[in-house]
């Protein structure tokens, strides 16, 4: 009975793995992509690539539970014998960490030239495309005015118990912190962080929860990203967003990145895929998707919505991420000690 059950299960698993996902196509060229971007947004792009090139793509998506921990760690663990060809990350600073660890291989795509220099690695270990902005999300039922001065007043109040931010150990909030540290210093960042905590800011475990707290009126103001903000706006929640601006008026624009994995099994197909990701077409596809990602290179402006044009305006003020990449690890080390008392 047991042997029969086990045999049945193994056969079923093999059959399902063979026919279940309908993606493996046997002998044709193939490619493995690790993707931290939202699956529903990335899938049409990948499907388009499949249709154009005939290259079969196996995708591994990240999930919120891992806060991009999974794929980056996987790539590090697999460094000796990688199975992944291209890492499509939605955070440039996370990708830069992999460059420092020797996981990536430089590749200057013919399409990299259309991306501004501030959004790509100087040695082309990664190239950015389609970005998100860090924004303040405000609840319109609770907040009367929607201008930077109002946000400043709210953030300098003695009590911040109706302000929420994601725990900075992960995700784009970590990138936000790294940018702040690069702009000022680690000490100033620490002071600001402790000041937020002392005044009772609500820390949650992700930007999506930050968005939900503001959308539900539990908090008045939250730090989040444009794609999360649109999640609430599209549902008709009473929210509006303003870009986070640094002391010098710069915005924080966090691009997706495409990076070639060193020693990957399918380098030629991987380069084709990176070229495709960095193309105008893909930037337009991502701009018209629900997340309204901001094209970084030149695109046909007539195809952009007013919302994306506005975001594009804000992104023109973006701070360079290179200084932030340099302090990223220091910030992470400090946060480790801060949150785990080590």
């Amino acid at each position: 009975m047991l042997a029969a059950t086990l045999c049945g299960l193994v056969i079923a698993a093999l059959l399902i793995s063979k026919f279940g996902n309908g993606r493996s196509d046997g002998d044709g060229p193939s490619l493995v992509v690790y993707c931290s971007c939202d699956a529903a947004i990335a899938e049409p792009v990948i499907e388009k690539f499949r249709q154009r090139t005939g290259i079969s793509v196996e995708v591994r998506f990240d999930e919120e539970a891992n806060k991009s921990l999974g794929l980056a760690n996987l790539l590090l663990a697999e460094k000796g014998a990688p199975r992944c060809d291209v890492y499509w990350n939605n955070q440039a600073l996370g990708t830069d960490r992999l460059r420092r660890e020797g996981v990536l291989e430089a590749y200057e795509s013919p399409n990299a030239g259309r991306i501004p220099a501030g959004f790509r690695d100087a040695d082309f270990y990664w190239t950015g495309f389609s970005a998100r902005l860090r924004v303040y999300l405000l609840n319109t039922d609770e907040v009367g005015k929607f201008d930077p001065a109002t946000v400043d007043v709210m953030l300098t109040a003695t009590q911040l118990d109706r302000v929420t931010i994601a725990q900075p150990v992960f995700g784009t909030t970590l990138s936000h912190y790294a940018v702040l540290a690069a702009q000022t210093s680690l000490e100033e960042l620490q002071q600001w962080h402790r000041s937020l905590q002392q005044r009772g800011v609500r820390q949650v475990r992700g930007n999506s929860i930050t968005r939900d707290l503001v959308a539900e009126g539990i908090c008045d103001l939250g730090f989040t990203d444009t794609d999360d903000a649109y999640g609430a706006i599209d549902k008709g929640r009473p929210v509006r967003m303003l870009p986070v601006r640094l002391a010098d008026g710069k915005t924080i624009c966090l691009p997706n990145t495409a990076a070639l994995i060193a020693g990957c099994p399918h380098p030629d197909e991987a380069r084709q895929f990176i070229d495709f990701l960095l193309s105008e077409n893909v930037e337009l596809m991502l701009a018209t998707a629900s997340a309204r990602q901001i094209p970084l290179g030149p695109v046909d402006e007539s195809q952009l919505s007013d919302e994306v044009r506005q975001l594009r305006e804000w992104s023109r003020d973006a701070v360079s991420l290179r200084p932030a990449a340099n302090v990223h690890q220091q910030v992470l080390d400090w946060l480790l000690s801060e949150y785990t008392a080590q």
Binding site: C84, G206, S208, R211
Partner: peptide, 18 residues
């Protein structure tokens, strides 16, 4: 394995973006 996407990971992915 890379060709297998369990439903639970997909659920977390969907949850992230609301």
């Amino acid at each position: 394995p890379v060709q297998f996407e369990p439903v639970v990971t997909r659920l977390y992915n969907e949850m992230h973006y609301g």
